[in-house]
């Protein structure tokens, strides 16, 4: 399935209360490396979306969530299981490297 957008309004419901692991992509329009991994995350979501839900959080529009999770560098990918951050990946990485980091979830 394709990635979807998450906001402060539905973060609890979509991410923290999800029954499957959720990867949140903290990104912004002006961040080149964020745009570079966008299509890679779409691919991963299409291939593994049933096991790992992938959602995108725009740090410009939703800075309260970004601050809450201590984002100081984007792209930052957080994996949430039962409402807890269990994995953080910082910086743009090629697809094989991302799949390796995410292998416990997919």
């Amino acid at each position: 399935m394709a990635t979807s957008k998450v906001t402060a309004a539905n973060f609890d419901e979509v991410v923290l209360k999800s029954s499957t692991p959720v990867l949140v992509d903290f990104w912004a329009e002006w961040c080149g490396p964020c745009r570079a991994i966008g299509p890679i995350l779409e691919d991963i979501s299409n291939e593994y979306g049933d096991k790992l839900k992938i959602v995108k959080l725009n740090t410009d529009e939703e800075s309260s969530i970004a601050i809450k999770y201590g984002v100081t560098s984007i792209p930052m990918l957080n994996v949430y299981v039962n409402g807890e951050v269990v994995k953080t990946i910082i910086g743009a990485k090629p697809k094989p490297a991302l799949l390796k980091e995410l292998e416990a979830f997919i």
């Binding site: 961040c31 201590g70 100081t72 560098s73 984007i74 910082i90």
Partner: peptide, 13 residues
């Protein structure tokens, strides 16, 4: 501390 305050990309971070 990379990504936790240490950065190589001012325009990103």
């Amino acid at each position: 501390l990379s990504g936790r305050g240490v950065s190589w990309c001012a325009t990103c971070d």
